[in-house]
Protein backbone atom coordinates (compact mmCIF):
# COMPACT_ATOMS: atom_id res chain seq x y z
CA UNK A 1 0.00 0.00 0.00
CA UNK A 2 1.13 3.48 -0.78
CA UNK A 3 2.25 5.50 2.22
CA UNK A 4 0.41 8.80 2.55
CA UNK A 5 2.08 11.89 3.97
CA UNK A 6 0.37 11.44 7.32
CA UNK A 7 1.58 7.90 7.74
CA UNK A 8 5.18 8.83 7.10
CA UNK A 9 5.05 11.53 9.73
CA UNK A 10 3.50 9.12 12.16
CA UNK A 11 6.19 6.55 11.51
CA UNK A 12 8.96 9.08 12.09
CA UNK A 13 7.62 10.04 15.46
CA UNK A 14 6.95 6.50 16.60
CA UNK A 15 10.25 6.11 18.36
CA UNK A 16 9.66 9.18 20.49
CA UNK A 17 6.19 8.22 21.71
CA UNK A 18 5.83 7.16 25.32
CA UNK A 19 4.44 3.70 25.80
CA UNK A 20 1.99 2.20 28.27
CA UNK A 21 3.04 -0.46 30.75
CA UNK A 22 1.96 -3.13 28.27
CA UNK A 23 4.05 -1.59 25.50
CA UNK A 24 1.45 0.22 23.35
CA UNK A 25 2.52 3.68 22.11
CA UNK A 26 0.42 6.52 23.52
CA UNK A 27 -0.89 8.74 20.73
CA UNK A 28 -2.66 11.33 22.87
CA UNK A 29 -2.42 11.95 26.57
CA UNK A 30 -4.84 14.00 28.62
CA UNK A 31 -3.49 15.28 31.90
CA UNK A 32 -5.85 16.81 34.49
CA UNK A 33 -8.16 18.25 31.84
CA UNK A 34 -10.89 20.54 33.12
CA UNK A 35 -13.55 22.34 31.11
CA UNK A 36 -15.77 25.21 32.18
CA UNK A 37 -18.75 26.49 30.25
CA UNK A 38 -19.04 29.95 31.77
CA UNK A 39 -19.53 29.33 35.49
CA UNK A 40 -20.46 25.69 35.10
CA UNK A 41 -17.70 23.11 35.28
CA UNK A 42 -18.24 20.28 32.82
CA UNK A 43 -15.07 18.21 33.26
CA UNK A 44 -13.08 17.59 36.43
CA UNK A 45 -9.41 16.59 36.12
CA UNK A 46 -9.60 13.93 33.41
CA UNK A 47 -6.49 11.78 32.87
CA UNK A 48 -6.65 9.51 29.85
CA UNK A 49 -4.18 7.83 27.54
CA UNK A 50 -5.31 7.29 23.97
CA UNK A 51 -3.44 4.30 22.61
CA UNK A 52 -2.15 4.30 19.08
CA UNK A 53 -4.03 2.12 16.57
CA UNK A 54 -6.72 1.38 19.08
CA UNK A 55 -10.35 2.28 19.20
CA UNK A 56 -11.09 4.02 22.47
CA UNK A 57 -14.77 4.27 23.33
CA UNK A 58 -16.07 6.98 25.63
CA UNK A 59 -19.31 5.95 27.30
CA UNK A 60 -21.54 7.41 29.98
CA UNK A 61 -24.98 8.89 30.54
CA UNK A 62 -26.09 12.08 28.79
CA UNK A 63 -24.36 15.20 30.04
CA UNK A 64 -21.47 13.27 31.56
CA UNK A 65 -18.86 15.22 29.60
CA UNK A 66 -17.79 12.57 27.10
CA UNK A 67 -18.54 14.70 24.04
CA UNK A 68 -16.98 17.72 25.72
CA UNK A 69 -13.82 15.73 26.29
CA UNK A 70 -13.80 14.50 22.71
CA UNK A 71 -14.11 18.04 21.42
CA UNK A 72 -11.13 19.07 23.53
CA UNK A 73 -8.94 16.61 21.64
CA UNK A 74 -8.98 18.70 18.46
CA UNK A 75 -9.93 21.98 20.09
CA UNK A 76 -13.39 22.13 18.54
CA UNK A 77 -14.43 23.72 21.81
CA UNK A 78 -12.55 26.82 20.69
CA UNK A 79 -15.56 27.71 18.57
CA UNK A 80 -17.68 28.08 21.72
CA UNK A 81 -17.02 31.50 23.22
CA UNK A 82 -17.75 30.70 26.85
CA UNK A 83 -15.75 27.47 26.97
CA UNK A 84 -12.45 27.37 28.91
CA UNK A 85 -10.15 24.37 28.90
CA UNK A 86 -7.57 23.71 31.60
CA UNK A 87 -4.91 21.02 32.06
CA UNK A 88 -2.78 19.52 29.35
CA UNK A 89 -3.50 17.47 26.24
CA UNK A 90 -0.50 16.07 24.45
CA UNK A 91 -0.42 14.80 20.88
CA UNK A 92 2.91 13.16 19.95
CA UNK A 93 4.73 14.99 22.76
CA UNK A 94 3.25 18.37 21.84
CA UNK A 95 0.78 20.20 24.07
CA UNK A 96 -2.07 21.01 21.71
CA UNK A 97 -3.18 23.96 23.85
CA UNK A 98 0.28 25.52 23.55
CA UNK A 99 -0.10 28.99 21.95
CA UNK A 100 2.51 27.96 19.36
CA UNK A 101 0.22 25.24 18.02
CA UNK A 102 -1.73 26.09 14.87
CA UNK A 103 -5.30 24.92 15.40
CA UNK A 104 -5.83 24.48 11.70
CA UNK A 105 -2.89 22.11 11.45
CA UNK A 106 -3.99 20.28 14.60
CA UNK A 107 -7.43 19.64 13.14
CA UNK A 108 -5.86 18.30 9.99
CA UNK A 109 -4.02 15.77 12.17
CA UNK A 110 -6.95 15.06 14.46
CA UNK A 111 -10.02 14.76 12.26
CA UNK A 112 -13.61 14.60 13.39
CA UNK A 113 -16.83 12.86 12.38
CA UNK A 114 -20.01 14.26 13.81
CA UNK A 115 -23.18 12.85 15.28
CA UNK A 116 -25.41 13.89 12.42
CA UNK A 117 -24.00 13.32 8.94
CA UNK A 118 -23.12 16.78 7.68
CA UNK A 119 -21.97 16.50 4.07
CA UNK A 120 -21.38 19.85 2.42
CA UNK A 121 -23.98 20.82 -0.16
CA UNK A 122 -21.51 19.96 -2.89
CA UNK A 123 -20.88 16.96 -5.12
CA UNK A 124 -19.59 13.71 -3.59
CA UNK A 125 -16.22 14.35 -5.20
CA UNK A 126 -16.01 17.91 -3.90
CA UNK A 127 -16.94 16.76 -0.41
CA UNK A 128 -13.97 14.44 -0.23
CA UNK A 129 -11.67 16.79 -2.15
CA UNK A 130 -12.46 19.64 0.24
CA UNK A 131 -9.79 18.85 2.84
CA UNK A 132 -6.99 17.99 0.38
CA UNK A 133 -7.75 21.20 -1.51
CA UNK A 134 -7.53 23.52 1.49
CA UNK A 135 -4.37 21.85 2.71
CA UNK A 136 -2.80 21.69 -0.74
CA UNK A 137 -2.24 17.92 -0.49
CA UNK A 138 -2.64 17.27 -4.20
CA UNK A 139 -0.15 18.51 -6.78
CA UNK A 140 -2.36 17.83 -9.77
CA UNK A 141 -5.87 16.95 -10.71
CA UNK A 142 -4.98 13.28 -11.05
CA UNK A 143 -3.42 13.35 -7.57
CA UNK A 144 -6.64 14.76 -6.22
CA UNK A 145 -8.72 12.17 -8.03
CA UNK A 146 -6.56 9.45 -6.56
CA UNK A 147 -6.88 10.81 -3.03
CA UNK A 148 -10.64 10.99 -3.42
CA UNK A 149 -10.86 7.46 -4.79
CA UNK A 150 -8.59 6.03 -2.08
CA UNK A 151 -10.49 7.79 0.68
CA UNK A 152 -13.82 6.59 -0.64
CA UNK A 153 -12.42 3.08 -0.90
CA UNK A 154 -11.16 3.16 2.67
CA UNK A 155 -14.57 4.38 3.79
CA UNK A 156 -16.18 1.49 1.91
CA UNK A 157 -18.24 3.82 -0.20
CA UNK A 158 -16.39 3.80 -3.50
CA UNK A 159 -18.28 0.93 -5.13
CA UNK A 160 -21.61 2.52 -4.31
CA UNK A 161 -20.86 5.99 -5.64
CA UNK A 162 -18.13 5.63 -8.26
CA UNK A 163 -20.53 6.31 -11.13
CA UNK A 164 -22.06 9.41 -9.62
CA UNK A 165 -19.22 11.32 -8.04
CA UNK A 166 -20.60 14.60 -9.38
CA UNK A 167 -23.99 14.19 -7.76
CA UNK A 168 -24.68 16.09 -4.55
CA UNK A 169 -23.49 14.40 -1.37
CA UNK A 170 -26.72 15.41 0.33
CA UNK A 171 -28.60 13.07 -1.99
CA UNK A 172 -27.07 9.94 -0.42
CA UNK A 173 -28.80 7.90 2.27
CA UNK A 174 -28.01 8.63 5.91
CA UNK A 175 -25.54 5.77 6.27
CA UNK A 176 -23.82 6.65 2.99
CA UNK A 177 -23.65 10.28 4.07
CA UNK A 178 -21.94 9.29 7.30
CA UNK A 179 -19.42 7.13 5.43
CA UNK A 180 -18.90 10.07 3.08
CA UNK A 181 -18.09 12.21 6.11
CA UNK A 182 -15.63 9.56 7.25
CA UNK A 183 -14.06 9.51 3.76
CA UNK A 184 -13.86 13.29 3.93
CA UNK A 185 -12.03 13.06 7.24
CA UNK A 186 -9.66 10.34 5.95
CA UNK A 187 -8.82 12.38 2.85
CA UNK A 188 -6.62 14.78 4.83
CA UNK A 189 -4.66 11.80 6.22
CA UNK A 190 -5.30 12.47 9.90
CA UNK A 191 -3.49 10.51 12.58
CA UNK A 192 -6.41 10.46 14.97
CA UNK A 193 -10.10 10.36 14.07
CA UNK A 194 -12.62 11.52 16.64
CA UNK A 195 -16.18 10.26 16.23
CA UNK A 196 -19.04 11.84 18.15
CA UNK A 197 -21.85 9.26 18.23
CA UNK A 198 -21.37 8.56 14.53
CA UNK A 199 -24.20 6.04 14.33
CA UNK A 200 -26.89 7.67 16.43
CA UNK A 201 -28.71 8.99 13.37
CA UNK A 202 -28.42 5.76 11.39
CA UNK A 203 -30.52 2.64 11.01
CA UNK A 204 -29.13 -0.74 12.20
CA UNK A 205 -27.85 -1.85 8.79
CA UNK A 206 -26.01 1.42 8.15
CA UNK A 207 -24.71 1.24 11.72
CA UNK A 208 -23.28 -2.22 11.11
CA UNK A 209 -21.47 -0.97 8.01
CA UNK A 210 -19.98 2.00 9.83
CA UNK A 211 -18.89 -0.19 12.74
CA UNK A 212 -17.21 -2.60 10.36
CA UNK A 213 -15.47 0.38 8.79
CA UNK A 214 -14.26 1.66 12.17
CA UNK A 215 -12.70 -1.71 12.84
CA UNK A 216 -10.86 -1.65 9.50
CA UNK A 217 -9.65 1.92 10.01
CA UNK A 218 -8.02 0.99 13.31
CA UNK A 219 -5.07 -0.41 11.38
CA UNK A 220 -3.98 3.01 10.14
CA UNK A 221 -5.61 5.46 12.47
CA UNK A 222 -6.10 6.02 16.16
CA UNK A 223 -9.80 6.35 16.83
CA UNK A 224 -11.72 7.84 19.72
CA UNK A 225 -15.46 7.28 19.60
CA UNK A 226 -18.23 8.62 21.79
CA UNK A 227 -21.22 6.34 21.90
CA UNK A 228 -24.46 5.95 23.77
CA UNK A 229 -24.73 2.33 22.85
CA UNK A 230 -22.80 0.02 25.14
CA UNK A 231 -23.17 -2.81 22.66
CA UNK A 232 -21.47 -0.63 20.10
CA UNK A 233 -18.65 0.19 22.49
CA UNK A 234 -18.24 -3.51 23.17
CA UNK A 235 -18.25 -4.35 19.46
CA UNK A 236 -15.85 -1.77 18.07
CA UNK A 237 -13.47 -0.70 20.83
CA UNK A 238 -10.41 -2.14 22.49
CA UNK A 239 -10.37 0.39 25.31
CA UNK A 240 -13.35 1.91 27.06
CA UNK A 241 -13.55 4.97 29.31
CA UNK A 242 -16.60 5.54 31.47
CA UNK A 243 -17.52 9.13 32.27
CA UNK A 244 -19.97 10.19 34.94
CA UNK A 245 -20.95 13.74 35.99
CA UNK A 246 -17.80 15.21 34.49
CA UNK A 247 -15.39 12.72 36.03
CA UNK A 248 -13.56 9.93 34.28
CA UNK A 249 -14.63 7.06 36.51
CA UNK A 250 -12.79 4.19 34.97
CA UNK A 251 -10.72 3.33 31.93
CA UNK A 252 -9.49 -0.05 30.82
CA UNK A 253 -9.71 -2.89 28.34
CA UNK A 254 -13.20 -2.97 26.89
CA UNK A 255 -13.58 -6.56 27.93
CA UNK A 256 -12.64 -5.80 31.53
CA UNK A 257 -14.93 -2.78 31.76
CA UNK A 258 -17.93 -4.75 30.58
CA UNK A 259 -17.27 -7.98 32.42
CA UNK A 260 -15.41 -6.92 35.50
CA UNK A 261 -15.74 -3.22 36.27
CA UNK A 262 -13.86 -1.97 39.31
CA UNK A 263 -16.17 0.88 40.17
CA UNK A 264 -19.73 0.46 41.43
CA UNK A 265 -20.99 3.31 39.19
CA UNK A 266 -19.63 1.62 36.10
CA UNK A 267 -21.25 -1.62 37.20
CA UNK A 268 -24.58 0.15 37.68
CA UNK A 269 -24.37 1.90 34.33
CA UNK A 270 -23.46 -1.10 32.21
CA UNK A 271 -26.08 -3.26 33.87
CA UNK A 272 -28.67 -0.60 33.05
CA UNK A 273 -29.44 0.58 36.56
CA UNK A 274 -29.21 4.23 35.41
CA UNK A 275 -28.46 6.35 32.33
Amino acid sequence: MEMTAGNVQQADLNGALPVTEDGVPIKMRANQVTVHYGEKQALFGVDLNVRKSNVTALIGPSGCGKSTFLRCLNRMNDTIDICRVGGEIVLDNEDIYDPKIDVVELRARVGMVFQKPNPFPKSIFENVAYGPRIHGLAQSKSDLEEIVATSLQKAGLFEEVKDRLDEPGTGLSGGQQQRLCIARAIAVSPEVILMDEPCSALDPIATAKVEELIDELRENYTIVIVTHSMQQAARVSQRTAFFHLGYLVEEGKTNDIFTNPKDQRTQDYITGRFG
Binding site: E105, R107, A108, G131, A185
Partner: peptide
Protein backbone atom coordinates in the same frame (compact mmCIF):
# COMPACT_ATOMS: atom_id res chain seq x y z
CA UNK B 1 -26.68 27.77 7.23
CA UNK B 2 -26.47 24.97 9.80
CA UNK B 3 -23.69 25.15 12.37
CA UNK B 4 -22.97 21.48 11.59
CA UNK B 5 -21.59 22.47 8.18
CA UNK B 6 -19.27 25.01 9.79
CA UNK B 7 -18.18 22.41 12.35
CA UNK B 8 -17.61 19.87 9.62
CA UNK B 9 -15.37 22.25 7.75
CA UNK B 10 -13.50 23.35 10.88
CA UNK B 11 -13.06 19.70 11.85
CA UNK B 12 -11.17 19.16 8.61
CA UNK B 13 -8.74 21.91 9.47
CA UNK B 14 -10.29 24.70 7.42
CA UNK B 15 -9.79 28.23 8.67
Amino acid sequence: VPQSLRDGSAGLGAT
